[in-house]
Design a protein around this nucleic acid. Sequence first.
RNA 1: CGUCCAACUAU
Length: 245
Amino acid sequence: EYAFNVMLKAFWQANDNDGIVRTSRLMRQANVKPNAVTFTTLMKACARRGDVRRVRKCFHHMCEAGIKPDIVAYNTLLNALRMVGDLESAEKCMEDLEMDGIRPDVVTYNTLLKLYSEKGKLCEAKALTRRMASEGIQPSEITYNIMIDACGDAGDIDAAEREFSDMLARQVSPSVVTLTSLIYAHAKNGGLFAAIRTLRQMRETYGVSPNWISYACVIKCLDEQERHQEAAELRQEAFELGLQH
RNA sequence: CGUCCAACUAU
């Protein structure tokens, strides 16, 4: 059974949709029962093509096959809804899951937080983090990454910095994604100086190596402000570090 | 064995 699931995943990674369909047929012919993992893998494949309709169908097929969707299956459905921006269905999915007696986990919350962020609903996102805390779910590094983005996109750089401080206070280690998000939040909100400072602190204070994206956020902003000389220096520095683009 | 996060660009 695992073997088929692994095959599905392999075809998915190779972006081979026909392979996925053929493998599903093989499974039926071989009388191998799909499990929750099988369905989740298929749901993810449909979601990648933006076909939420088929994601929902997979989900229903799973239920009809007598397999109770677990938290991972719900999270996959929720993320598919997020990808098409269907907030209403996503909130309903959250209710359904709880009615099913399943506890939302940190991934569930992160996915919904990201959707609120994408909809520009910073207040709802913050409210959700409070609910998360009240349910005893600890925010992960990704939770903070999403909140930093949400604050930056909403133009509230102070809130972004507060999220970052909170993260450090709770001993959650920032990653290259966290720090790059913070750089981007500053750059986007007129804090070019702070963006550059953060790029420097990345290595020196947090022991994290910047990647090309970290540099690109600052370089683009410098170019927009006609500070081409500094931009060129950073490009050179990134090049010397072997960072590609 | 399956689910969540960052800039730009392309489709």
